[in-house]
Amino acid sequence: MRVLHINAGLENGGGLSHIIGLLSQFPKDEVELLTFADGPVAAAAKKKGIKVKIMGKSSRYDFGLLKELVAYINAGDFDLVHTHGARANLFLSLIRNKIKAKWIITVHSDPRLDFMQRGVLGWLFTKLNIRSLKKADGIFAVTQNFKNVLLALGIAENKIRVIYNGIRFQTVVPERQPHDKFEIVIVGRLHPVKGHSILLNAFKEAAIKEAQLTIIGEGELKNDLQKLTSDLKIDQQVNFTGMLTQTEINQYYLKTDLAVLSSLSESFPLVLLEAANYGVPVIATDVGDMRQLIPDDNYGWIVPTQDMIALKTALLEAYANWQTGTLQPIGDRLRVHAQANFSIDNLCQSTIKGYTVFLSTNM
């Protein structure tokens, strides 16, 4: 079985980790990655020894590459083409009838929200992405919730399989670094869907003098969030790091007491699995099948989306546990549960099974 994975190439964060983590588990002669741009995805793949084809297009929507894309796919004798991201989905939808391989999409995020707050262009790209999803031979949804969204959009149930994200867990967690503050971290794009402003307001209302909040990531809301931090008069307790490598993020986890996910919508978040890998307890909004990761309050906190009061309450409860030394055991239990259920091996085996099913099915 030969599979060509396609991505625009500019992904960071969870999308990049998912693609590279998955491809690195397959034999090198069975998988290949094609990116439209020479960016972080291609760079990460090369480091893992994955074969990469870079189209080298500077324009985000250079439709001149369609003919080249058709030729490359057909000449490579691929059984499957597996796309990740709205731009890759759109391009494959335009050449679907010209390629011999079957086409699978992984839906990493809610397609109705990918282009939120982008005006008329956002509305148009949302429509085009949903149209692309309906043309694929099969779809891997990373949560049951996303499967339900796809069903509501009119996609046939027999074309959808739920495959949860997974990572490679450490055998032994490195020794934690001593620190004096109650250290909180949030990792993710500075984008409206991530809910950073709700967290900042909850952090302000919690008024925990010993707390330090670190915000890791870049994005369109950076200036707005920094201004909000200043307006709330919490800028002495909030640190914006910008974009960090995974290695740098892991170093933060060694001195972090609590990880937060404040998103309005989310896939099954890799950032929380990465926090769990270091035994860091989490507060998360009720998104992305979160209860699969946090089945009850022995494993962390789940709060409603856009509920600042509930998030403030969870922060205060976690802080009280930190003061009494009962917070870290929650993170330890979370790690054991996550490792048993959301490993990279589980992801790989579920993906292979999905490939086999779709290859044997006449759509």
Score class of each variant (00 low, 15 high):
27 P>V: 02
245 T>F: 11
267 S>G: 15
170 Q>D: 07
278 Y>A: 13
78 F>L: 10
160 I>H: 07
39 G>W: 02
55 M>F: 06
301 W>F: 13
36 F>Q: 04
211 A>L: 00
248 E>R: 10
337 H>D: 10
6 I>E: 01
20 I>Q: 01
348 C>Q: 15
360 S>G: 15
148 N>A: 10
309 I>A: 14
180 D>V: 12
284 A>T: 14
361 T>Y: 03
19 I>W: 00
253 Y>W: 10
8 A>V: 11
13 G>D: 08
248 E>V: 15
245 T>H: 09
58 S>K: 15
14 G>Y: 02
149 V>M: 06
103 W>V: 14
296 D>T: 15
217 G>E: 02
243 M>Y: 06
235 D>L: 01
70 V>N: 04
173 V>C: 04
287 V>Q: 02
83 T>Y: 05
145 N>I: 10
346 N>P: 00
189 R>K: 08
186 I>G: 04
136 A>N: 11
172 V>S: 06
29 D>W: 00
22 L>C: 05
52 V>A: 07
113 L>P: 15
99 I>T: 06
128 L>D: 03
116 M>S: 14
11 E>Q: 14
318 A>V: 11
128 L>V: 01
136 A>C: 14
329 P>V: 08
141 A>S: 03
354 G>D: 05
350 S>H: 06
219 G>Y: 01
45 A>I: 06
203 F>Y: 06
239 N>E: 09
261 L>K: 03
